[in-house]
Structures are given as C-alpha cells and as structure tokens.
C-alpha cells in the first residue's frame, strides 16, 4: 500500500493525528484524537486525492486494564482509487462519547449502534442511538471484558416451574 494517505493525514492534521504506522500486511493505520475524528473523516472523504467514499466497517475494542480503555476502529475504503486506511481512536472510560460519522457515510449507522450496544460508546449526533441486537431493557454491555460469561438476563421474569431434569430449585440459579 502506498504511504500517501498517512503522509497526507500527518501533514494536514499534525495535532489531531497522533501517530501513523504501517500495520501487519502493509495496511495504512493512524491514531486519531477523539474530538477530531469527524473532521479527519470529512477530509478523507472530500479530498479528491483521498476519496474514501465508503466506510465498510466500524467497530470497537475493549482494552481492559489499559488507559484509555476503549478504542473505536474505522476501516475506510475508496472504491475509486482502491486504497484503504484504518483509523484508531482511543476513548477513555470517563468520557464515552465520540462524534458520529453517519453524516459522511450513512452505511456507518448500524456499526455505531452496534458499538453502543456492545461497548456502551455513545456517538454524538447519531440520528438513532439505540441498541441494535439486545433488547432495550438489557443491563450492561456484553462485549466488555468485565461482563460476566455466565448468568441470565431474561426479558420477562422467569416463572418458577418444576424442572423435570434438574429438580426444583431457585429460579435464575445459573
């Protein structure tokens, strides 16, 4: 991959782009400051030499124990110039709000909702910031590393019925 994209990013945003590096397999990657992400994305979309017209994947990672804890990852592609870039945005646990990019790429809509559902990261300016997969009454964000693996969260209260296989017991025991 060419280094043109990351070089241009570093030159255009010396402060907002903290670090650029070449990832595994030669991918172009850059760390971007949280508040500037919408601005950087606008440049990437609108500059004719960048022309990133699609955001095929936006996701988040929980690096529990590190500071800042969360990270939002934007994978962008230009179908016209056939190049890709990956932006990584660190999000501290104390301030889980990231500017949205849905006004630039409508396709990012459900990805951002997914990040909110699974990690609790809110996207400011998103038109419909609700959970995507889990139901609204669900407590917690399942993909966080400190979310327990075992347990139940039924949508309605479980009836205390006699379990033919395990015998009577308190409901919600596992």
């Amino acid at each position: 991959m060419s280094k043109a994209v990351t070089a241009a990013l570093k030159e255009k945003f010396p402060d907002a782009v903290q670090e650029v590096y070449e990832g595994v397999g030669g991918d172009d990657c850059a760390f971007v400051k949280k508040d500037a992400v919408a601005e950087v994305c606008r440049f990437l979309k609108e500059d004719p030499a960048m022309a990133f017209n699609m955001a095929p994947y936006v996701t988040a990672v929980d690096y529990l124990g590190q500071e800042p804890r969360f990270e939002v990852v934007y994978n962008l592609v230009s179908t016209r110039l056939n190049h890709r870039v990956r932006l990584r945005v660190k999000v501290p646990e104390s301030d889980l709000e990231v500017p949205t990019v849905t006004h630039l790429w409508r396709g990012a809509d459900w990805f951002e909702r997914y990040c909110f559902d699974m990690y609790g990261i809110r996207f400011l300016g998103h038109p419909d910031m609700r959970r995507l997969f889990m139901y609204d009454e669900f407590v917690g964000h399942p993909l966080r590393k400190d979310y327990p693996l075992k347990g139940r969260q039924p949508l309605t209260a479980e009836r205390n019925f006699r379990d033919l296989y395990r015998g009577p017991g308190p409901s919600g025991r596992d």
């Binding site: 017209n53 699609m54 955001a55 095929p56 179908t79 790429w105 409508r106 396709g107 990012a108």
Partner: peptide, 11 residues
C-alpha cells in the same frame, strides 16, 4: 449504494 456501504453483487 456506495454511501450506504453496499458490497458484493448489490453494489
């Protein structure tokens, strides 16, 4: 289609 993030045969 591009803006909505389509891919594959639909794109």
């Amino acid at each position: 289609a591009i803006d909505l993030g389509f891919a594959g045969p639909c794109l």
